[in-house]
């Protein structure tokens, strides 16, 4: 298909690598992270040149794997993809210029099409692999976030605490609800304290999720206490007209634990007096 232009480039490989190298050096690859060392930048450029010229003579499968590795590398170091695409466009200009000088009009037109095909294929592969790698990263991060999202911690017999940290969106609220209910069954909890100290904003949506969660907790046979209500949270709740009157609320986790002990008919007693009489 594009063997003629490929041969041409392959024969003049060394010249183009050199020319392209200099255009690559003018690119600003460090716009996001000034922390990347020059060494890594150089390595990346060399790998890219290798990769692109490698497509001229390596098999399909090997090429795909190399593009994947390169995309991973860009994402790992936060190097922008756009700069590399721009460099490929610059490469085209250089090659076209030479072709124009060295070939007839007819040859040139054919070369032009072949060259476009070759470069477009490279750009497509690069973009595909880059977005795949991006997507993988996002998925991994989501999974990681889910794993750390909402642990249910038993603090006393029949009493558990669930500290919530970060924003509560609908997707996360569903996971919180599931791990809350499963944990209650697992630990045979009668009271569960939901601590929202670490939740930055409590709007109607978040409040709605909390109310739903406490209803579900009651259905499986336990009680819910909402703790960690800071002054500004109390203000927003009232100002937004959110009705939390059906849920027991306490300002701090400590007060909540005392209430939970009362609800399970227990109390904390101090042993000091006994001890002092013994001594």
């Amino acid at each position: 298909m594009h063997s003629s232009v490929v041969d041409f480039i392959y024969q003049n490989k060394d010249i183009y690598i050199k020319k392209w190298r200099s255009t690559l050096d003018e690119l600003d690859l460090n716009i996001y992270h000034s922390s990347i060392s020059n060494e890594i930048i150089e390595e990346t450029k060399a790998e890219f040149i290798d990769l692109v010229f490698g497509t001229l003579y390596t098999g399909e499968g090997e090429v795909a794997a190399r593009f994947r590795r390169f995309a991973d590398r860009l994402i790992y170091y936060h190097i922008p993809l756009s700069e590399f695409i721009r460099s490929l466009q610059l490469l085209r200009r250089v090659i076209m210029h030479d072709l124009e000088e060295q070939s007839t009009k007819e040859q040139y037109d054919r070369y032009n099409v072949d060259l476009e095909d070759w470069l477009d294929e490279n750009i497509n592969k690069l973009v595909d692999e880059f977005s795949n790698a991006r997507e993988n990263t996002v998925n991994l991060q989501n999974t990681a976030l889910k794993e750390l999202s909402a642990p249910l911690i038993p603090v006393f017999d029949k009493i558990c605490v669930m500290p919530l940290v970060g924003t509560v969106d609908t997707e996360r609220a569903k996971q919180i609800m599931e791990s809350l209910l499963d944990g209650i069954i697992q630990h045979r909890a009668q009271v569960v304290l939901i601590d929202i100290t670490g939740v930055p904003v409590v709007d109607t949506m978040v409040a709605h999720h909390i109310i739903k969660a406490s209803q579900a907790v009651q259905l499986v046979g336990a009680e819910c206490i909402l703790v960690g209500i800071r002054p500004e949270i109390a203000q927003t709740i009232v100002n937004l007209g959110i009705d939390l009157s059906k849920i027991i609320t306490k300002s701090t986790l400590q007060k909540g634990v005392y209430t939970a002990l009362q609800m399970t008919r227990r109390e904390i007693i101090t042993l000091d007096e006994q001890r002092s009489t013994e001594v």
């Binding site: 209910l181 739903k212 046979g221």
Partner: peptide, 27 residues
């Protein structure tokens, strides 16, 4: 009422069905 499964509780709450004033226990 005892032993309502988490999946059932979640479904009821999402449906907007609340068994108001009904006593529940784990088992």
């Amino acid at each position: 009422l005892t032993g309502i499964q988490p999946a059932v509780a979640i479904t009821l709450v999402e449906m907007g069905v609340s068994l108001n004033g009904v006593q529940t226990a784990l088992d």
